[in-house]
Design a protein around this nucleic acid. Structure first.
Lengths: 137, 137
DNA sequence: TGTTTTTTTGCAACATTATTGCATTTTTCT
DNA sequence: AGAAAAATGCAATAATGTTGCAAAAAAACA
């Protein structure tokens, strides 16, 4: 309940209806959300622009991060680790189901070490696995 | 030289100016290409629609694949392995440089085995690593 | 609590990116 | 070369993302 306010206040954000509602969606969603999901689940009670700006604010503050996708959609998910403003450091494994098309953030799966050629320096690693999820198998 | 024709013919595609030019770009490019890159490098000699359709055709045939990105751009790269039409099976590691913003397809880096929770079946794995590339370090 | 300051929101307009149908052109096959 | 098939360009349309500015809401302060 107050988790919402906690997160917003910790990040020095004004508490508004829009931010509460959108952050609530993330807290109650197991997977990642696309912009369209958010618009759908807020009953169009907010302007598109507000959604865009809210998401951007959350990313800036390190509350959510975006997930690489192969289509041209942008997916967002909560940062579970202690991301700081402007500096995300989670190495995520995401799973996209070919059947139901859901994206699931696999918190319990760790990203293995990857050996890069000389001269390359890794900051962040995102792994996107496609296949069939446990619900659709 | 005839590599172009080879690829097109092997995939039962008509040989047209557009396809030759676009495929040529991929063959001569070390990294991945965005739609915008292609339009830029073809001197607007083709309609935007043609570029879209050509890229889609190449993806369908398994000549190129698209790469997950965290912004809303779509990147394409040649399939090095023997992808078949409608069935890509390359496990790619891609590197996005924070400095020069280039995307590099790391053919020599293999994707490590990732253990998924029970019930999940992996088809493809994409790894996107961001950091600083060897040119910018 | 009421007032001022700061921040956020909504609207409108605009920009960019992607898609579809159809007539014309190009390519392929014989 | 001629017929059939496929690809292209154009126009219109849709979807998606951005910006400026005035109104509204939230925060700060007395």
């Amino acid at each position: 309940m107050d988790q919402l306010l906690d997160i917003l206040k910790k990040n020095q954000l004004s508490v508004t209806e829009g931010r509460k509602k959108i952050l609530g969606l993330f807290l109650n969603s197991p997977g990642a959300l696309a912009h369209a999901d958010i618009e759908k689940n807020t009953d169009a009670s907010f302007d598109r622009v507000t959604v865009y700006r809210t998401l951007q604010t959350f990313v800036d503050k390190g509350i959510i991060h975006n997930i690489p996708t192969t289509d041209n959609s942008i997916l967002y998910a909560l940062c579970k680790d202690n991301c700081e403003a402007g500096h995300h450091h989670d190495n995520h494994v995401h799973f996209i189901c070919d059947v139901c098309d859901k994206t699931i953030c696999m918190d319990h799966v760790s990203v293995p070490e990857i050996k890069l050629p000389k001269g390359f320096k890794q900051r962040q690693a995102d792994v996107v696995i496609s296949g069939v999820c446990s619900d659709c198998k």
